[in-house]
Simulated assay, not measured.
Amino acid sequence: MAQPAVPSTQVQQPTVPLRVPVREILPWAVFAAVLGLVLLYFIGAEQGATSVFSGTWVHEFTHDGRHLLGFPCH
């Protein structure tokens, strides 16, 4: 179908911002916060006296990330 050469002059209604209820965001925000804290623990504190896992495999796995984020490890 051919389009007219002159666009229509209909007035567009202003857009209304989308509102998302806090009840829908809160579980995901809590999940993200807990996941972030767990990752921060493993990268920053999983070594030495506060070690949850025995051995050095967690330390070696997160070694470069630890230096990248500024945590001292040796």
Rank of each mutant, 00 (worst) to 15 (best):
V6F: 15
T50D: 12
F31L: 10
F31A: 09
V11R: 15
T50K: 15
G44S: 01
V52A: 12
T15A: 14
I43C: 00
V16R: 10
F71D: 03
F71Q: 07
T9C: 12
V11I: 15
L39G: 05
V20Y: 02
P72T: 11
L69T: 05
R23I: 04
I25K: 12
S51F: 08
P4E: 09
D64Y: 10
G44L: 01
W57V: 10
P4I: 08
G55D: 06
V38K: 08
V16F: 05
F61I: 08
Y41N: 01
G48E: 04
E60N: 05
F71G: 04
W28P: 00
W28N: 07
A49F: 15
T15K: 15
L69R: 04
G55N: 09
G65F: 13
S8G: 13
P27E: 10
D64N: 09
R19E: 03
L39E: 02
S54Y: 12
I25C: 04
R19V: 03
A32R: 08
M1P: 09
G48D: 04
A5K: 14
F42V: 03
S51G: 12
L37V: 10
G65M: 13
L39M: 06
P72I: 09
R66D: 00
A29Q: 07
A49H: 14
A33E: 05
Q13K: 13
H67L: 09
D64E: 10
G70M: 08
P21M: 05
T50V: 12
